[in-house]
Amino acid sequence: MNEESPTLSALKLRVAAMERRAPVGKAVRVATGHGDIDAALAGGIARGRLHEIFALEGGDAGSATGFAGMLSIRLGGGIVWLREESAVRGGGHLHAPGLVEIGVDPARLLLGVLPNALSVLRAAADVVRCAGVGVAVIELHRDPKVLDLTASRRLALAAEESGVAALLLRIAATPVASAADTRWAVRSCASQPLPANAPGHPTFDLELLRQRGRGADGRWQVEWNREQAVFTSPTPSGVVVAVPARRPAAAPIPLRRAG
């Protein structure tokens, strides 16, 4: 058929109107700065999609939160971060000076602390639908019943319509079927030590568990470079020598300004 009959195109329009969906174009992809990851993602992480970030163990919450914050910086725009009250009690406050330290500008941040997972998802539906938002971070702990395939489909559809990047941050949760574009597991990873054996820059072990439409997966160790706002591969710096865990007190300690 060379040309659609007018009736058919009219019908298609009506169906589109019923589904309330603009024809979805190609997603805008934002490079992470890490060559291998960008290659695996066909150019980078997509705006207007739902992405899941898992801390499979509660102990990795800090790393997963950091990764979500760093991705938000890459993706750009205003950040709306939604959390549960129980998360604040169990996992601590989202600490703004700490976000500043990874490069987030708090002026771009709106923080919502809501009573439970259901209210988080309800608010998230509103946030993700609002095209003025850059990134919506939806933080849910454990496996709330309300977060099922339907809920994640709803978020994914809203994100496609508005172009908002939705990051579903799941702490101490197990991956289940969802409508996410990509799914990541974040684990903490030993950092490249700074002089005097000080803990170094944020370093993660990233695993791409799943990618919609592409079978590719992979696992990388990445370090976050705050100044350039890119993920890089950790490179051992030359000055470091192996130091035993208990340093002999007599060893000369190169000084570093702290605080």
Partner: peptide
Amino acid sequence: PVPTGWDAPEKGEPPLRPIHLFD
């Protein structure tokens, strides 16, 4: 209003403040 006045972190330093704070 949109808050300002956050100190920029020092260049080349790792994060010196935590991302989660227990209170």
